[in-house]
Amino acid sequence: MTVAVLDYGLGNLGSVVNMLKRLGASPQVVTTADEVSVAERLLLPGVGAFDRGMALLESQGLIAPIRKFAAQGRPLLGICLGMQLLLDASDEGARPGLGLIPGRSIRFRDRPGVRVPHMGWNRTTPLREDPLLADLPEDNRFYFVHSYHAIPANDSAVLTTTTYGEPFVSMIREQGTMGAQFHPEKSHLFGMTVLRNFCSL
């Protein structure tokens, strides 16, 4: 199970690589378009601001290779900011996203008793069956750190929702392109389950 982990300057690569190794996978940290083009599976991590992430991908010539990779149906998983970069745009910035899953990300609404960012442990509720969710128990817990959340254009792209003041989309998928708003590499057995399923696709 070989997984290419994209290093474009934003992301907790060490934790992701270590978790994949614990699963018996063979993670390869990649940085170039050529490496993306030959990958079997691609993991797009990310922390920080939307525009910064897209600017780094653009400056390193990675946008077109990622889009081609996704168009070929190969498994692609975006994590945290990486999930939001899969969308068309974000209210956080002005740059266009990768446009792999129609939609945009918006900021959590300010409301009493709900602090932004959403930080800490929370559960996901699946809306449909999917191989990415195989063996994931109903009583799951994942670690989140984010101020923005995805609004896919198509309801069919939503895999799971999570509630933080209001329900929001926590996992998305269209064909081989997938996203998780939480950090599976920090989410113990539940995160390992999601990553194991991804490696099996």
Rank of each mutant, 00 (worst) to 15 (best):
T2C: 02
V3F: 09
V3H: 03
V5C: 09
L6W: 02
L6A: 03
Y8F: 10
N12H: 07
G14K: 09
G14R: 15
S15D: 05
M19K: 14
M19R: 12
K21I: 12
R22S: 15
L23K: 00
T31F: 06
E35H: 03
E35M: 03
V36L: 14
S37G: 12
S37L: 11
S37Q: 15
V38I: 14
L44Y: 07
P45M: 11
V47N: 08
A49Q: 14
F50K: 05
R52S: 15
A55G: 14
L57Y: 03
S59F: 01
F69R: 11
R74E: 13
P75K: 07
P75T: 14
P75R: 02
L76S: 06
L77I: 08
G82V: 12
L85P: 14
A89Y: 02
S90Y: 04
G93K: 07
R95E: 09
L100I: 04
I101V: 13
P102E: 04
P102T: 04
G103W: 06
F108V: 12
D110W: 08
R111L: 15
R115A: 08
V116A: 03
H118E: 10
M119H: 04
T124I: 15
T125G: 07
E129D: 13
E129Y: 09
P131K: 13
P131F: 13
L136D: 10
N140H: 08
Y143H: 06
Y143D: 08
H146V: 12
Y148R: 13
A150L: 09
A150D: 07
P152G: 10
P152I: 01
P152L: 05
A153V: 02
S156H: 09
S156Q: 15
S156W: 00
V158T: 15
G165H: 09
G165Y: 10
G165T: 11
E166G: 03
I172G: 01
E174K: 11
M178L: 12
G179E: 02
F182L: 04
H183K: 02
H183N: 01
P184D: 11
E185P: 05
E185Y: 08
H188E: 06
G191W: 07
M192A: 15
T193D: 00
V194K: 06
N197A: 08
N197C: 01
F198P: 00
F198Q: 09
L201G: 00
